[in-house]
């Protein structure tokens, strides 16, 4: 069985702060990390590998620096990795990203594809389902547990707003996973050695057999028109006096609003 995991290197948005004077992002010293959801996808793949002996290949599409993220997954236990990288891929939206990933995955071969629920930089949650559509395979999103897996089928729990669904699918299938699914393992010593030594295979636009008008900025239906700082709409009302007087005034206002 072949498992392909899609990971993305992202800025640690927990560390991103906004400069109140210029209203821009302060990115200085913000570390790049593997998208947190994707480490859960890697772990889910490794758990299936532990059970079935499947081969786990981790891929990422990104600039050359994204190699570091791939090495981390080798340290966790991935068998193989691919860096999908080409100048032509720059500026890709989710459509063009999914298209490139689909072309690469189709070359690699797959029975199960695992993605994170969403990437924390864009938060779109679109790439997984779009890749499945391109490959013409079913997908199940928001997987919080893999109940059973065989050569032909899989049964999982899918998180919904009001609980969860137990869903079965034939293979091949693509799953996107939420954090509840597992706790990612730490790299082993042996893994760390392997990660250091590993030669990272790169795939460019020719290697994946993609058409140039479908990748990068050119292949992207959406465009970013502009970015700006979230504005604070306020219709502020002043409460004055001692704390008790302020609370008094507030409770009166609440009374008007709610008819206490």
């Amino acid at each position: 069985m072949n498992i392909v995991v899609c990971i993305k290197q992202v800025p640690d948005t927990a560390e991103v702060r906004i400069n109140p004077e210029t209203n821009t992002l302060i990115r200085e010293g913000v570390p790049s990390i593997i998208n947190p959801y994707d480490t859960h996808a890697v772990e889910a793949a490794l758990q299936i590998k532990d059970k079935t002996g499947a081969k786990v290949t981790v891929i990422t599409m990104g600039p050359p620096q994204a190699e570091d993220a791939l090495r981390e997954t080798i340290a966790m236990g991935a068998d193989d990795v691919r860096l999908i990288s080409d100048r032509a891929f720059a500026g890709a939206d989710t459509w063009a990203t999914s298209y490139a990933l689909y072309k690469a995955i189709d070359k690699i071969g797959f029975d199960i594809i695992l993605c994170g629920k969403q990437a924390i930089d864009g938060d779109t949650a679109q790439v997984g389902p779009e890749v499945a559509e391109f490959l013409n395979i079913p997908h199940i999103a928001y997987v919080r547990k893999v109940e059973d897996v065989s050569d032909k089928s899989i049964r999982v729990q899918r998180l919904m707003d009001d609980g969860y669904d137990v869903v079965e699918s034939s293979l091949p299938v693509l799953l996107t996973v939420v954090k509840e699914i597992n706790i990612p393992r730490l790299p082993s010593l042996k893994g760390k050695m392997a990660a250091k030594k590993a030669v990272i295979t790169k795939m460019d636009i020719n290697a994946i057999g993609a058409e140039v008008e479908n990748v990068g900025l050119k292949g992207s239906p959406t465009q970013v028109k502009n970015i700006f700082a979230p504005d604070a709409k306020v219709d502020r009302k002043v409460l004055s006096g001692t704390l008790e007087e302020q609370v008094d005034a507030l409770v009166k206002e609440l009374g008007v609003m709610k008819c206490v």
Partner: peptide
């Protein structure tokens, strides 16, 4: 969970843009 799961497939199929959230 429903819209975010299947609408991307529609966008991929029709080759058009999709903006989330």
């Amino acid at each position: 969970p429903i819209g975010r799961s299947f609408i991307p497939r529609v966008a991929a199929k029709l080759k058009t843009g999709l903006t989330a959230d």
